[in-house]
Amino acid sequence: MAYSDKVLEHFKNPRNVGTLDKSKKNVGTGLVGAPECGDVMRLQIEVDDATGVITDAKFKTFGCGSAIASSSLATEWIIGKNVDEAATIDNMEIVEELALPPVKIHCSVLAEDAIKGAIRDYRIKNGLPVEEEVKAH
């Protein structure tokens, strides 16, 4: 199976690879997937408490090229967005942007879950309300 140019581009030049300081109160971490499933994604956000805007995001991903591209794209999209806005990103937007084939849809689901996980962690750390959203994949 050939990869789309966009997947290749993100894979070759992944944006925002790295680690944020978990001990900071305004950093939220989402860790999703499992080594046994062949994919683990960690996405972190740093939020400006006053405005609720995501000022930085970093990821590390164990997974295929599509998973790496999905997480790279996710960090790119959420930086500069308000937390509430970022929480609405849907995996299908990632699928469309990266032209992922059906077998790679779950890689984008992982990215959506990682964003939501990071936001949830940030909210819990800061005593903010967490909406229990359960989405069926």
Binding site: L31, V32, G33, A34, P35, E36, C37, V40, H106, V109, D113, G117, H137
Partner: peptide, 10 residues
């Protein structure tokens, strides 16, 4: 220890 982490398996 990775085996001690509670992974969110799909």
């Amino acid at each position: 220890d990775l085996s001690k982490i509670e992974w969110s398996e799909h």
